[in-house]
């Protein structure tokens, strides 16, 4: 055991092992979250959800993955094949890359960049490119409409997303996610979600819109454009798009936890688990992801003009005002 732990100190081996662990995590998250999504929706709608494969339906993800691997990969005849096939990859890679800077526990971060927040923002912004590629590559009117909606939405909500990060950056004085978590301390009332409550809510809403979940799922909009930019995908390409969506949802939850809810820090000092503090990080992330799913089955979809109004006329002014409030408070105290 000790020799294995010592191996983690050697640089290229540490990077390879942690990279493999993150990849394992991201690929499995998609399967587990699909399962969770269906179970949660089942319980919210007073039914069981999947309960046939394995005990209480727990092996459903394995059956899903097996089915998706054996399905044929159909592409439309007039599609732009390279763009069509490249789009799921262009969506998945950014969602997986952000995990490299998320700190799971004090030492457990693949790359402790000093510009980690900037890295997160930059990599998230590439996601829109994949959506546009999918919409254009399928050569279908529904796909194109979905992609245009998706790109407009993702570009618009990037602005409040970035602005709502700035309060935390000002309080910490650092762009490193590890520093942000350490600055929040190990008591629940010193975490940033209390002094930065408007920013926390804005980040949550903008994050929800950034990963295109209900009530911001206009790019999919199954009642009007039957699935949007992913309408022409099937088999593993479709699975990769789904995996990318779930991975980005998980990453937004993890970053929310890291920035506002104290990361791996325990809520009270006596609950400190020492080397097992990553449990706190996992629990908090799971809680945020559960609220995402809760919202999905409780709130109707917004209209396009309501979406833009919410983004530009409410969220952006709120973040700007709270930025001034934070700056003033830091000047006075």
């Amino acid at each position: 055991m000790q020799t294995v732990l010592n191996l983690l100190e050697v640089e290229p081996i540490r990077l390879l092992i942690s990279f493999g662990a993150v990849l394992f995590l991201v690929l499995n998250l998609a399967a587990v979250l699909t399962m969770a999504e269906r179970k949660v929706s089942g319980y919210i709608q007073l039914r069981y959800g999947p309960n046939r494969v394995g005990p209480r339906g727990l092996l459903q993800p394995a059956a899903d993955v097996f089915k998706l691997f054996t399905k044929e990969n159909v592409s439309p005849g007039r599609s732009d094949l390279w763009v069509f096939l490249g789009a799921p990859i262009a969506m998945f890679i950014p969602a997986a890359l952000v995990w490299l800077v998320v700190p799971f526990a004090p030492e457990a971060v693949v790359a402790d960049l000093n510009v980690a927040i900037l890295f997160f923002v930059a990599i998230t912004s590439i996601g829109a490119l994949g959506v546009v590629m999918a919409g254009y590559g399928s050569r279908s009117a529904f796909s194109l409409l979905g992609a245009l909606r998706g790109a407009a939405q993702m570009i618009s909500y990037e602005v409040p997303l970035i602005l709502s990060l700035l309060g935390v950056v000002m309080l910490t004085g650092s762009l490193s996610l590890v520093d942000v978590v350490q600055a929040q301390g190990d008591t629940i009332w010193t975490w940033y979600f209390l002094p930065q409550l408007p920013m926390f809510i804005t980040f949550y809403i903008a994050g929800l819109a950034e990963v295109k979940r209900v009530p911001f799922d206009l790019p999919e909009g199954e009642s009007e454009i039957v699935g949007g930019y992913m309408i022409e995908y099937s088999g593993m390409t479709w699975a990769l798009i789904q995996a990318a969506e779930f991975a980005s949802m998980a990453v937004i939850s993890a970053v929310t936890v890291t920035l506002f809810v104290g990361g791996w820090q325990p809520p009270l000092p006596f609950l400190d688990l020492g080397p097992f503090n990553w449990v706190w990080f996992g629990l908090k992330t799971a809680l945020i992801m559960f609220t995402f799913q809760w919202i999905r089955w409780s709130v109707p979809r917004l209209r396009m003009d309501q979406l833009m109004d919410l983004g530009w006329k409410i969220l952006v002014p709120v973040t700007l005002i709270w930025l001034f409030v934070t700056a003033g408070a830091m000047l006075v105290f």
Binding site: L113, N114, L118, V121, A122, L129, A151, A152, I155
Partner: peptide, 25 residues
């Protein structure tokens, strides 16, 4: 790394997407 992040954020994430947006419209 900061300049690299800005390059990705502004040129890949914003400029290219807006250009594609313009072309499709």
């Amino acid at each position: 790394p900061a300049l690299a992040a800005f390059q990705v954020l502004i040129y890949v994430g914003a400029v290219t997407v807006v250009i594609l947006f313009g072309i499709m419209f």
